[in-house]
Amino acid sequence: MSDKIIVSATINDEPTDMLVSQRDSLLEALRAAAGALGVKEGCNDGNCGACSVMLDGRLVNSCLVMAAEVEGSEITTVEGIADADHLHPLQQAFLEEAALQCGICTPGFLVAAKALLDENPDPSEHEIRYWLAGNLCRCTGYDKIVRAVQQAAAGTT
């Protein structure tokens, strides 16, 4: 007996049907069934934040959500944060501040940082570091990421 189910959700403003196994995480469904390869698997247990997405307006680790849970939900991944012609100011700031090296953490940082600025457009350095504590980066040492978020918040990109 197949345990496959169809889960319908709005992903980056597009109504999407995903054929998933009941044991799949949202992370697996987004990558395999919705083609959102910007959602990265890092630790797969909620420590690293590489799989960060927005689920009905809240920042979550998609590895800790069951795919079956998101029926009828709205999901935004890194693929959904730029508009058609322009990078999001955070993406531009990450480029200008060289806030990435290997890049696997970057989609999660962008989604998490956008969630912060949507809630708090003028965060302090402490607030940025605290908000992003659930996103790990082994390359940059974080300073460049914090500066990029500050730059995007200041609107100087």
Binding site: G49, L64, A112, A115, L132
Partner: peptide, 9 residues
Amino acid sequence: IGGTGIQGR
């Protein structure tokens, strides 16, 4: 408890 993404759930 956890980071922001954990606190969302």
